[in-house]
Design a protein around this nucleic acid. Sequence first.
DNA 1: GTGGGTGCAAATAATTTGCACGGTA
DNA 2: TACCGTGCAAATTATTTGCACCCAC
Lengths: 133, 133
Amino acid sequence: MKGQDIKNAGLKVTLPRLQVLEFFEKRPGEHFSADDLFTQIRSSSSDIGLATIYRVLNQFEAAGLLIKHQFDNGQSVYELDTGEHHDHMVDVDTGQVIEFFDKELEDLQIQLAKKYGYKLIDHNMVLYVQKEK
Amino acid sequence: MKGQDIKNAGLKVTLPRLQVLEFFEKRPGEHFSADDLFTQIRSSSSDIGLATIYRVLNQFEAAGLLIKHQFDNGQSVYELDTGEHHDHMVDVDTGQVIEFFDKELEDLQIQLAKKYGYKLIDHNMVLYVQKEK
DNA sequence: GTGGGTGCAAATAATTTGCACGGTA
DNA sequence: TACCGTGCAAATTATTTGCACCCAC
């Protein structure tokens, strides 16, 4: 059932938490900022607070339910963690976000870190692209 | 001479601008935040204002003298644009920034964008690493 | 019932902007 | 001298925190 993921994270199953989680589950592969969630959840129903959204997003990120990203525009955005790692391209004209995964790229990064005497912990990679004319 | 780059950018050669540019030129390959510059320039000499630092950094970035980066810690950092593109690794334990360049990685990104029907305009890639024990 | 959770408003942090004064070309 | 540039303080934007009330367990 719905609240199980929340319970597994050691959190009480409350209305705001359910609303945030369902919001992401209904829109797989999409990315939202705290303010997106605040505006949309509030308009469609309850009197949820922006501070609560931020708190819930942080808790869900810590619990591994959501992934946080910082594209080049000041605001952080979140997406559902499906367990399948991928990177992002951002269309500079439309702002559209495209997810992709490339094994060769992943391996290359691990090798690069090793080449400098390090172990790869995480990486952040965004390609800014434009549609070919 | 020193002020030429500033003049070429269509800006007047003023003390704060010279101070910021010289600060970077004396520390090649290093990265600084607006607040780093503010604290260090102010302590060593003049009564430069933080707002001026931000204005000068934005102008220098627009002029191509500096490159702006957003690592995963809220603050933006800047480095001198030497014309030689490179990416960064951040040591998660020490915060140290390591610059690197890998042709294979660059080519792979171009190919990936193309594979999805796009042209690569720019990219942002940071590897978060840890020293191998 | 109790301790965690919530909304609201106030607090922070990073950055930007308005304004009167000051310095460069 | 004309205007751009500057320092300071106030304004913005994104996010966090304090607090009294509320609700899931």
